[in-house]
Amino acid sequence: MHGPESAAWLLVALCAATGAYCLLRRRGGDEEQRRTAGAEALMGFGMALMAVPAAVLTPPRWAWLAYATVFGAAALRALWAARHAGHHVHHLVGTSAMAYMSLAMAARPAAHAHHSGPTGSPALTAALVVYFTGYVLWSGLRLVPAATAAGAPGTETLAWGRRPELARACRLSMAIGMLAMLFTM
């Protein structure tokens, strides 16, 4: 990721923490919830790796191609899962965006790895920015009522690993992180 190093480290911390929480969410729930949490953990940790400042770590071209392969496979899995549940479409867009960013970084000449500048397709990047901006606004609006209802008297107290508002907050933070990464393209 290119841009201010302190912002990049904050993004690394946010995405790693989100990935860790999603791994904890894999411990409970039904099979579908565990699969979803696993996909989100992959996204969180993948985003954390990709957000490491270029001045600290500049992966070789083969590493970017490996990222693209992993996220391409995750996108195919999300496409397969989207047949049964619509929320997998968001996973499909997210994993496809990660594969796209990985391919754009693999195509960047090694001599320019530390310099920011446009990479990838401006139209595709703009479309992804519009999608994730809309997702951030939509999920942010959904998060407020969920958090308010969770603290209301008479509601069931759930373990923190099963609270729906925390899962939504993780998705929201990853979408914000995705926007930050797309803006650096």
Rank of each mutant, 00 (worst) to 15 (best):
A97F: 04
H2A: 11
A73C: 07
R168T: 15
D30V: 07
T18Q: 03
A55F: 05
T133F: 10
Y21F: 13
M174L: 15
G151D: 00
L182T: 03
L14Y: 00
T184E: 11
P153F: 05
G72K: 13
A127C: 09
A48P: 03
P53E: 09
G134L: 13
R163H: 12
T133L: 14
L172D: 05
A78P: 07
A66Q: 04
C15Q: 09
V56N: 01
A167H: 07
W9C: 09
A78S: 14
P59H: 01
W9H: 06
R61A: 06
T95C: 12
G86C: 04
L65K: 01
G19T: 00
A75E: 00
A110C: 05
A169K: 02
G94Y: 03
V89D: 00
A81P: 08
A63I: 07
L57N: 08
A146R: 09
T184F: 06
A149I: 07
P109R: 01
A107N: 07
T148F: 01
A74H: 09
S116I: 01
H84Y: 09
W80Y: 14
W62R: 15
P59G: 05
A150C: 02
H91N: 12
A63M: 11
P122M: 04
S139G: 05
F45V: 01
L166V: 09
M174V: 00
W80G: 10
L42C: 10
A8K: 00
A152V: 05
F71G: 04
L49R: 05
A167Y: 09
A48R: 03
G117I: 03
A127H: 06
P122N: 00
S173D: 05
A81K: 11
V12Q: 05
A48W: 00
R77H: 12
L24K: 10
V136F: 01
T125L: 02
V70R: 02
T119F: 06
A167K: 08
A16H: 05
G151W: 08
H84S: 15
A20W: 00
A13Y: 02
A39S: 14
T148G: 00
L92H: 04
W160L: 14
L65G: 02
L137Y: 03
T18D: 12
A169S: 13
A55Q: 10
R171A: 12
T157Q: 11
V129M: 15
A51F: 13
L137I: 15
I176K: 01
A152F: 07
A175M: 06
A8N: 08
Y131F: 14
A97S: 13
T184G: 11
M174W: 03
E32A: 14
A75G: 02
A149Y: 04
E40C: 06
S121R: 02
R26N: 02
G120W: 01
R171G: 12
A16Q: 04
E156G: 02
G134E: 10
T69G: 15
L141I: 09
